[in-house]
């Protein structure tokens, strides 16, 4: 049943060119206590115009993967021992820094979580948005300001022409996030990475920002990687979903298939812990246990200490990503049981 709906909704042509593929990416951080494998063999792809939700709790490696795509990991304590990040077929990790800088901001842009700390406190927002045009397109100050106002209008900041001379701290949280978004879409990127863009905001403002992102995406046709730990945000806005746990991808599928029937115990746990009106009055189920210690990852499947489907081989054998549908896979030895249990 879910097979037929895949082809319709997903609409991806088999063999069509991916916009970006992450392949076997590993990222390691050197810490005082030892080496942390923050990303441990992550692969996913995103097609042009698609919205991919990357879901996972803090420490799952979802943001680190995004930083690797943006090339923001250039510090002495970080190592990328393996993996490729191909953008239009070119491996970004193999590029020289100045070639990378040409892609960064212009073709792949990023919106960060906390806009107050992510915007420079000592420059006006107009200057910070206009800087994109001044640096990348060599526009004059006046021309850059005009474009900045246009962008601020486009992300619906009232009285943009006056407010461009204000500083980030003079805006509300939602308005600041709009400014971040304006900056990110300034040069019409093909891919926008939104790293928990609504986490720091009020619930009502969250919806407005998600609507704005959806609208901008419809207008421009850009692809988007939406990083979140909030399944509620994902349902309305994403085409596909990648669930990460302990530095690995545990499930990858079209959004609606995941909502109908998750095929990994972790995804299932996440779905069950969403508050629902029908369950009112009963305790909300939560995933037992705590996230894994990044310095001492469990053997085998890293989810096994918290998993109710656990068998002996889960402790010893790390599951591969079993292909369970045309565009769907699950890294669980017992995905059939999970899937059946979900249907039942």
């Amino acid at each position: 049943m879910w097979r037929s709906s895949t082809a319709e909704r997903d609409g991806r042509v088999p063999g069509g060119e991916a916009l970006l593929t992450v392949d076997g990416l590993r990222v390691e951080f050197a810490t005082r206590q030892g080496v942390v494998r923050a990303v441990n063999g992550v692969s996913y792809r995103i097609d042009p115009g698609e919205t991919l939700a990357v879901l996972g709790e803090s420490g799952s490696g979802k943001s680190v993967t995004a930083h690797a795509i943006m090339g923001l990991l250039d510090t002495p304590t970080v190592r990328v021992p393996a993996g490729e990040i191909r953008f239009h077929g070119t491996d970004l990790l193999g590029l020289r820094e100045d070639d990378r800088a040409r892609i960064r901001g212009r073709r792949i842009a990023m919106v960060f979580q906390d806009a107050l700390s992510a915007l420079n406190p000592v420059f006006t927002v107009g200057a910070q948005i206009g800087e994109m045009f001044r640096v990348h397109e060599g526009l004059s100050r006046r021309e850059a300001e005009r474009r900045a106002v246009e962008l601020m209008d486009r992300v619906r900041i009232p009285a943009a022409a006056q407010r461009m001379y204000d500083y980030p701290h003079q805006f509300s949280g939602g308005m600041r996030q709009r400014i971040m978004i304006a900056m990110a879409i300034a040069l019409g990127p093909e891919l926008l990475i939104a790293d928990e863009p609504t986490t720091a905001l009020d619930v009502t403002v969250q919806a407005q920002i998600m609507d704005l992102l959806a609208e901008l995406r419809r207008e421009s046709g850009m692809a988007m990687i939406l990083i979140t730990h909030d399944l509620g945000v994902v349902a309305d806005s994403a085409d596909r979903i990648v669930v990460m746990y302990g530095g690995r991808v545990v499930e990858s599928a079209p959004v609606h298939e995941v909502y109908q029937a998750p095929a990994h115990p972790y995804t299932r746990g996440l779905l069950e812990s969403i508050p629902r009106l029908a369950r009112k009055g009963r305790a909300l189920p939560a995933i037992e246990g705590t996230p894994p210690d990044p310095l001492a990852m469990p053997t085998g499947c890293s989810f096994h200490p918290r998993c109710s489907y656990r068998q002996d081989n889960c402790v010893t054998d790390a599951p591969p990503r079993y292909r369970i549908g045309p565009t769907r896979d699950s890294a669980c030895h017992y995905w059939r049981e999970v899937l059946d249990g979900s249907h039942g």
Partner: peptide, 21 residues
């Protein structure tokens, strides 16, 4: 700081990231 990460993500040259931001 976070805003330095933003400046790098904007694709600004290093001398502008350091010298200005």
């Amino acid at each position: 700081a976070d805003y330095i990460r933003t400046a790098i993500a904007k694709g600004l040259p290093r001398r502008r990231v350091v010298g200005r931001h």
